[in-house]
Design a protein around this nucleic acid. Structure first.
Length: 646
RNA sequence: GCCGGCGUAGCUCAGCUGGUAGAGCAUCUGAUUUGUAAUCAGAGGGUCGGGGGUUCGAAUCCCUUCGCCGGCUCCA
């Protein structure tokens, strides 16, 4: 029998007989390691511990201390879920069950829907199987043989999977006598290693993610190496629910969605309106400071305009229905681009005046399908901080750099430090699905690439993910429970420039087509607002807080003094309220805390006599007595600096 | 749009297998004049999302419609 040389992570080597398994190697290192080993990495590839080795290899044994093993762990837990479901409901057909971020799911086909009670039963059965200490066993079968078997059992999804993915021989994993699943693996050695899992929800999901296909029942769950980690994760989910912008939006009286008006249409209440005004003012100031011109355009236009832009034919499904007026049919705008283009086209432009940057907080309306709306994050009417830049090819890179800097400054200004950037490129023209010339794509993509490098942004390149009209960079933020939402975007648009025959007169005296960059940084004011609420958990920084200071008189003797202070603060532009209700100060403080008002000024006889205020901060608590002037002097710089620390 | 769940007072929710609606908070009134997270008492308030049906009788059952939630799909 031949000898293999095995290299371990510390660089040491070991000679073993061909056919030895990673588990045996683990045991040779220590019995303890073999006990807790979950899976091996053999020559960089995750492999079952029981898979015999037949060539020289460098191997690492992964244990619950290795994050990398978590995917395998969750994948095995998904199999455990499927095994439990089959024991309880043998008529069920299996789909797929992969690990995902923070957990796993498994898709099932079954005539009756699963109920929440079923979920409990299934979870209990999973625990039973887990306790039986059942091994995950890999077997290989001929493709034909496996197909026949699945056909006979009516496992139609497995048949399709084997057809799609299986090689000559297909690998399957059994878990006990009654469970076998077509699966590439790897898996844990046995169920005893699965220590902490929980089933979370049931949802519908299309087979292979295609809405033309059958809807399956998906069970979501999560699993961690340790019960403590599982508890921490479930707690995070609870915390996320507490900071959900829809919940906080109601509690803090920021906004509402009115059934009488329709879904996906947002009503900003006075407090939300204050925050929104501040966001918009901040952005408009930035526009002006960064060389943009502000424009205003209508909300509707003749359908002819949308035909020219192409939206009528290609985006019609997503537009509000046409309305007839005396002379023509009109449609609500789903985008601002054609309007800005009309302004650009209203006169001739020389290369000398480019770039032209037209910006607007433009409200657009899109018909989103009924099941897709989500609070402020996905709506039917929203306001984009939208701008279009018309520039020469030579200017493109610098313009993109400026946009990216603007975008990063924007996110930073609101305290966002974590976001993902994606650079979406075309397919080189292979499919013919992209508009624009290869030269245009080259100029635009290299402008984006160079710009990303120049501003030091980490952008993941997404090949063949561009919009059909041009390449783009998107920046995405996570909401309270980790869902990603696109905010900032910088996109080239070759199509509209061509359709509207945009021109500028170049140095050579001839007409040229400008490059057009479409960009939005908040993305939508509504979405940004929603993410912001979750980011701050409703406790807006001082400069953004709808109410910055509330004055709490202890008895009604101080009501006059309180209103006097209030007037002085108002004159300084500070948003202030006086809680002059006939309530105890404890009660007033509690309400102010719940409303997350940054500063509470408690005033009683002592304060009034000395012209002082007793300052309480929503997070730091009682800050003691200060003169009114000192208090003002302490908060004014924070407001002016748009300080985001709390 | 699709699958599943849900819709009861301003808010959060209770109301078992059908017998004709309840709590806490909020609101209003009165008392209390209070020192850093809920003072006490009383009162008012609901076509049980809308429409239709079954039944002697429906918040409870059925149909339909609107909306919300979790996902899927979609997201120029």
């Amino acid at each position: 029998m031949s000898q293999l040389t095995i290299t371990l992570p510390d660089g040491s080597t070991q000679n073993v007989a061909s056919g030895a398994t990673p588990l045996e190697i683990a045991r040779s290192i220590s019995e303890r390691l073999a006990e807790i080993a979950l899976v091996a990495v053999v020559n960089g590839k995750l492999t079952d511990l029981t898979e015999p080795l037949n060539e020289d290899a460098s191997i690492r044994i992964l244990t619950p201390n290795d994050e990398e093993a978590l995917e395998v762990y969750r994948h095995s837990t998904a199999h455990l879920l499927a095994a439990a479901v089959l024991e309880l409901y043998p008529e069920t057909k299996l789909g797929i069950g992969p690990p995902i971020e923070n957990g796993f799911y498994y898709d099932f086909d079954r005539p009756q829907p699963f109920t929440p009670e079923d979920l409990e039963k299934i979870e209990a059965r999973m625990a039973e199987i887990q306790a039986r200490n059942v091994p995950f066993v890999r077997t290989l079968a001929l493709k034909e043989e496996a197909l026949q078997r699945y056909q006979k059992q009516g496992d139609w999804m497995k048949c399709e999977l084997v057809e799609d993915r299986g090689g000559e021989r297909v690998s399957e994993y059994t878990l006990g006598p009654g469970f076998s699943d077509f699966c590439r693996g790897p898996h844990l050695p046995n169920t005893s290693h699965i220590k902490a899992f929980k089933l979370l929800s049931i949802a519908g999901a299309y087979w292979k993610g295609d809405e033309k296909n059958k809807v399956l029942q998906r069970i979501y769950g999560t699993a961690f190496f340790k019960p403590k980690e599982l508890r921490a994760h479930l707690e995070r989910l609870e915390e996320a629910k507490r900071r959900d912008h829809r919940k906080l939006g109601k509690e803090l009286d920021l906004f509402s969605i009115q059934e009488a008006a329709g879904p996906g249409l947002i009503f900003f209440h006075p407090k939300g309106g204050t925050v929104r005004l501040l966001l918009e003012n901040w952005m408009r100031d930035q526009y002006l400071a960064r060389g943009y011109s502000l424009v205003y355009t209508p909300h509707v236009a003749r359908s002819g305009l949308w035909k020219t832009s192409g939206h009528y034919d290609f985006y019609g499904e997503n537009m509000f229905k046409r309305m007839e007026l005396d002379d023509a049919e009109y449609q609500l705008k789903p985008m601002n681009c054609p309007f800005h283009i009309l302004i650009y086209k209203d006169r001739q432009h020389s290369y000398r005046e480019l770039p032209v940057r037209l910006g607007e907080l433009g409200t657009v309306y899109r018909y989103e399908r009924s099941g897709t709306m989500h609070g402020l994050l996905r709506v039917r009417g929203f306001t984009q901080d939208d701008a279009h830049i018309f520039c020469t090819p030579q200017q493109a890179e610098q313009e993109v750099v400026s946009c990216l800097e603007f975008a990063m400054d924007t996110l930073k200004a609101f305290g966002f430090t974590q976001y993902k950037a994606e650079l979406s490129t075309w397919d080189g023209g292979k499919s013919g699905k992209y508009d624009g010339t290869p030269e245009q794509w080259e100029i635009a993509e290299s402008a984006l690439r160079n710009a990303v490098a120049r501003v030091g942004l980490e952008a993941k390149v997404m090949e063949d993910e561009a919009a059909f009209y041009g390449p783009k960079i998107d920046m995405k933020l996570v909401d309270a429970i980790g869902r990603l939402w696109q905010l900032s975007t910088v996109q080239f648009d070759f199509t509209l420039a061509r359709r509207f025959e945009l021109e500028y007169i170049g140095e050579d005296g001839r007409a040229h087509q400008p490059l057009m960059v479409h960009r939005a940084l908040f993305g939508s004011v509504e979405r940004f607002f929603g993410i912001l609420v979750e980011h701050y958990a409703g406790a807006f920084p001082l400069w953004l807080a709808p109410v910055q200071v509330t004055i709490l008189p202890i008895t009604d003797r101080q009501i006059g003094y309180s209103h006097g202070l209030s007037e002085r603060l108002k004159k300084l532009g500070i948003r202030v309220t006086v809680d002059d209700r006939n309530e105890k100060v404890n009660f007033k403080i509690r309400e102010a805390q719940v409303q997350k008002i940054p500063y509470m000024l408690v005033v009683g006889d002592r304060e009034e006599e000395a012209g002082n205020v007793s300052v309480r901060h929503r997070r730091r608590g009682d800050l003691g007595v200060q003169s009114f002037d000192d208090f003002v002097a302490s908060i004014q710089p924070l407001i002016a600096a748009h300080d985001t620390a709390d």
